[in-house]
């Protein structure tokens, strides 16, 4: 606080602090508190609001807890998001390593442009592209059957489709933080490890991965949060068996008109995501501020 007023002077410093407070209050605190307020109240017709039946209770949360399939969908969403995170990491790490340590500057910029171009397109359209690619009589099946890798077309929509669509959608969020941290590694360290006799696996385990830890944690947090909160990919590429928790929230709000129960589901997802993220950071032994940087 002192540092801010010293650097910018009292009036300007006060302005900045006020803006930050407004941001926190308007965009974080008020919406979340409103949602919590909704989640704790019953869904009542407008005439009964403020009446004797209106009061705080955990009924909406208990509904989720006692529901035969919603709890399962919730757990599956968390699990699938973790799977998306792992898959995206497995794709991105070798790519990030190549970009950060091996490629020539020209190759680096060429590949980064190629990777970024699809993101100039609308997210829904990108999802639709996958919808077309993965269709039962779509190009992927046709190609695989033609090559003889499949004897008959496969139904990709469902878990596989959602996984592919999400891994694709969140590739850059994983790639860029890892690339950033891998590229700051002094190549001489890799040479030194090799010179001392280390093989490729050990070099990555002992030198590159520890160095890139913060970037990996950041990428994983981004990807996990985005995947858990994703609506488009499961809606487009899913099947009835791969319902995502966000779809339930959507249904409560817009199909059943029960905002209170929708809010309770939303809060639950938010809290569990936070727990998962903090757990992940602890696992990586990275603190939140350095991950966000």
């Amino acid at each position: 606080m002192n540092e801010i007023t010293q650097r910018f002077g009292r009036p300007l410093g006060a302005c900045f602090i006020l803006l930050v407070l407004l941001w926190l209050a308007g965009l974080v605190l008020v919406p979340n508190l409103t949602m919590l307020d909704f989640a704790l109240r019953p869904n009542l017709p407008a005439t009964q609001l403020g009446g004797p039946k209106d009061g705080y209770s955990f009924d909406n949360f208990l509904y989720l807890w006692n529901h035969p399939s919603h709890g399962w969908i919730f757990l599956k969403t968390i699990w699938s998001s973790a799977l998306v995170t792992v898959l995206t990491f497995l794709i991105c790490y070798p790519l990030a390593y190549w970009l950060g340590q091996v490629s020539t500057p020209r190759q680096t910029s060429a590949l980064l442009v190629l990777l970024t171009v699809p993101y100039l397109m609308n997210e829904v359209l990108r999802g639709l592209a996958w919808y077309i690619i993965l269709a039962f009589d779509g190009p992927l099946n046709a190609a695989l059957v033609h090559l003889g890798l499949l004897s008959e077309p496969v139904r990709w929509y469902g878990d596989g489709g959602v996984l592919a669509g999400m891994a694709y959608a969140y590739l850059l969020f994983m790639l860029l933080p890892i690339y950033n941290s891998v590229s700051t590694l002094d190549h001489a360290q890799i040479d030194a490890a090799r010179d001392l006799g280390a093989g490729t696996l050990r070099i990555h385990r002992r030198v590159v991965l520890p160095h890139a830890k913060v970037g990996i944690a950041t990428g994983c947090v981004f990807t996990f949060m985005l995947a858990a909160g994703s609506y488009m990919a499961p809606a487009l590429l899913g099947a009835p068996g791969s319902r995502w928790f966000t779809q339930l929230i959507y249904d409560w709000f817009f199909e059943s008109g029960n905002w209170n129960r929708g809010a309770a589901y939303g809060v639950t997802l938010l809290v569990l995501c936070l727990v998962a993220v903090l757990g992940m950071l602890r696992l990586f032994q990275v603190n939140l501020t350095s991950a966000v940087k």
């Binding site: 002094d186 001489a188 360290q189 040479d191 030194a192 490890a193 090799r194 010179d195 001392l196 006799g197 280390a198 093989g199 002992r206 030198v207 520890p210 160095h211």
Partner: peptide, 29 residues
């Protein structure tokens, strides 16, 4: 290959592993 030669190199930048304590650095090989 470099990792099978009986040579050891001291790099211009030294290239110590910054995340390992000194003893692990020395004992890496």
């Amino acid at each position: 290959p470099a990792n099978r030669r009986s040579t050891a190199m001291i790099f211009q930048s030294l290239a110590l592993f910054p995340l390992m304590p000194v003893w692990e650095n020395i004992a890496f090989g």
